[in-house]
Amino acid sequence: MKEQLMEYNTAVLAGQENFHDHLMEEKFIQSSTQELERDIEEVKVSFQNKTLALQRVQIMDALRNKLKQDDVSSRPILETMKHIVLLSQTITEYQQQARQKEEQLIDIKRKRLSLKKDGGQKLQQIQTMMKRQKEKQASMNVTETEKMLHKLKKEREITAIIQNVFQSIIIGSRVNWAEDPSLKAIVLQLENNIYLQ
């Protein structure tokens, strides 16, 4: 790549290529350079990861060799490793418990959602029942009102008949009702139309 870059620079200085070709090649070189930089970065990361893995293997090998010696200095290492294993088991148990708690929480959320849906349906049923009950009550009120109006009409008719009977009795008795103030008040009151009141 460097050789190509040097050749292009030489060619440009010598004026052998035109300006347009030079721009195209420069863009190509820039994109190639960026690609190579990315590749180099990936190789560096891969190299670091492999180096870390190798160092871990070397440390484990050194620890195994030290433990095989079974002397006073290897006992604290063994104790520490046992403690690390114990801690790892404890962490695994806690992770399992956390997963179980998460599953229980998910179940509770599902049940809660189901109850919410059921509650919504029940509320809708209650609203529908209340609406029907109001409609039924309204129709009953209309029926009762119609009955009461019918009774009122009958009462007015009966009252009109009674008024006519009283008028006929008073007129038929040939009493001078205009001279008697109490009788005059009764006759004048009987003149009132019951349907206008």
Rank of each mutant, 00 (worst) to 15 (best):
Q125G: 04
I171T: 14
Q104D: 08
Q124A: 15
K131Q: 13
E146F: 05
K101R: 14
A185M: 03
I162Q: 08
Q89R: 13
T159K: 03
T145D: 02
I169H: 08
K131R: 13
S173N: 10
L78V: 01
L86R: 03
R132P: 00
I106G: 00
L149Q: 09
A138D: 10
R156D: 03
D180H: 07
T143C: 06
E103L: 12
L115W: 11
E102K: 04
P76F: 09
M140L: 12
W177E: 02
N141L: 11
L115V: 07
M130D: 08
L105Y: 08
E155L: 09
S114P: 00
E79C: 02
L87D: 05
D118R: 09
Q96N: 14
H150E: 15
I186N: 03
Q133L: 13
R112Y: 14
S139H: 13
I91C: 04
R75F: 02
S182P: 00
V85H: 01
W177K: 03
S182I: 00
Q100T: 14
W177H: 13
K131W: 06
R112V: 05
R156I: 01
L152K: 06
Y94K: 15
Q137K: 14
A160T: 06
L115P: 01
R75Y: 02
V165C: 04
K82A: 01
Q125I: 11
I170A: 04
L152I: 01
G120C: 05
T128N: 13
M81F: 08
F166V: 08
E155V: 03
T128V: 08
Q100A: 13
Q89C: 07
M140K: 14
K136V: 03
R110N: 15
K184V: 01
I169G: 00
I186S: 06
L183K: 04
K153A: 12
L113T: 11
N141S: 06
K101N: 13
A138V: 02
P181R: 03
D180Q: 05
I126V: 15
E155T: 04
R112A: 11
L152W: 06
M148A: 04
E135L: 14
Q127K: 15
Q163C: 00
K134E: 12
H150A: 13
Q163L: 00
I186T: 09
Q96E: 15
A160Y: 06
K109C: 02
Q137P: 00
R75L: 07
T159A: 07
I170L: 11
M148S: 05
L149D: 10
Q137C: 04
R110K: 12
R132N: 15
L105G: 07
Q167K: 14
D118H: 10
G119M: 11
D107R: 07
M130F: 06
Q121A: 11
I84H: 02
W177F: 14
L78N: 02
G172L: 13
T159W: 02
E103F: 08
R112F: 12
L86K: 08
T145G: 03
